[in-house]
Amino acid sequence: MTISEQQQEHEQEYEAQAYWVTKTGHGELRSESIPKPGEGEALVRTLFSGVSRGTERVVHEGRVPTRVAERMHAPHQEGDFPGPVKYGYLSVGTVEEGPDEWRGQTVFSLHPHQDLYVVPTDQLTLIPDDVPARRAVLTGIVEVAINALWEAGPRLGDRVAVVGGGLVGGVLATLLRKYPLGRLQLVDADPDKRKLAETIEVVFALPEQAKSDNDIVFHCSASNEGLKLSLQLAGDDSDVIELSWFADKEVTLPLGEDFHARRLTIRSSQVGAVALPRRHRRTNAQRLQEAADQLRDPLFDTFLTSECQFQNLPATLAALLEQPGGFCHVVAYPKPEE
């Protein structure tokens, strides 16, 4: 190959489309040119992406607090909060170009909603052959749950409550059911969440029915009431593991009740860093790979509750985020020939 041909190959670009939040509550698809992958990079064609309603609703509503806006940047985000911003972090696709060992592989990436993109291969997670690509969009959510488990360290015979039966709480309870616990309850104020608990084979309880004196309480409801209940359900000297992101919500707690009297601890579980008990022996990449491996369990399909085509994402997402309920919304992408 001549020098001129090498230069032309290096300069070749591809046309891609990406979803951008343009202003509060609105979004659109924008075209962009992406370069041919360089050394150590891969060109990924997206098969599916996932919408994590809680976080993406905060982004769409322009509610990311200025104080933590820089910390809340997704790995491949473009633009700044409140917008315009290209956001998202649950993407599954096929490697079309790159190192030989990656070509043709199904991979997960913490990438925004986009049909074609280039990323370093060390930021890709290999999806096992027996995990369907559609289910694999949950890799980033399972990672959040794994980090919380590493943070809390459930032990044999523990009494555990998960407060909040949304996407994160439900996925966490699905993983916890494999532990040899003394007791596990999924607690939610919505009686319809009983169906979820029955599906994942976990005991359900309304707040007034939930059992107290727990060794660990995981809070996932992103509500004042849920956090207050979590303190009430925790046993003396035990931990409440906080997974919710309240964004700009003000939180009011009755700290004069259970918190001081029973020497409770509220501990943050934030996925940006590996939980401290594993931080020196696990990397973020290893944590993501563990999440992908856990998705061999078909029960996780429970959390894929709706789907749209990528070209319809702007209109669909605007309507979706106005509606309560539901878990992970799946975005399906067209094949090249389509």
Rank of each mutant, 00 (worst) to 15 (best):
A152K: 02
N312R: 06
F303A: 06
K23P: 11
D158Y: 06
S230M: 10
V64Y: 04
C328S: 12
G83D: 06
G153V: 02
I266Q: 07
W245S: 13
Q105R: 13
T121E: 14
K193P: 14
G166T: 07
P154H: 00
H280C: 07
D258G: 10
D237I: 01
S33F: 11
D239L: 04
K193E: 13
I216C: 05
L43I: 09
P132D: 09
G226S: 04
D122C: 08
Q7N: 14
T139D: 08
V58R: 05
T125Q: 03
I127W: 03
M1A: 15
L313C: 05
V119R: 05
L156I: 07
Q6G: 15
G50D: 08
Q12P: 04
R279Y: 03
K228E: 15
D236W: 07
R30T: 11
Q294P: 00
A261Y: 15
L206M: 12
G27Q: 07
S230C: 09
G62V: 01
I216R: 07
N214C: 15
G88V: 11
Y19D: 07
S4E: 15
N284K: 10
E290A: 14
V119T: 13
S91V: 07
V21A: 11
R67G: 06
G153N: 01
C220I: 00
E9A: 15
H280K: 10
V171H: 01
